[in-house]
Amino acid sequence: MRLPCPCCGWRDLREFTCIGAADYLERPTADAPPEAWDAYLHVRDNPAGPARELWYHDPCGTWLVVERDTVMHAVTGSRAVEDAQ
């Protein structure tokens, strides 16, 4: 498997670490109710199809949001977390 890093271009899987769904970027405010924190920390969809995931490109230090199809394995997009909204 290969992934595109916005800095470095396409690279082998071995250079990346995945920490799961990109939902993790939507951090609740400090005073959000416990339900919001529970959902943020623990509740994830498990989509068969398009997914947005957080990956780290270790050699250059860039965190990415990778759009990937979990059925077809096609990578359709990749943006630096800093630039993603």
């Binding site: 470095c8 690279r11 071995r14 250079e15 270790d58 050699p59 250059c60």
Partner: peptide, 8 residues
Amino acid sequence: RTMLGHLP
């Protein structure tokens, strides 16, 4: 920036 074997 890449890896040489397992080395940064």
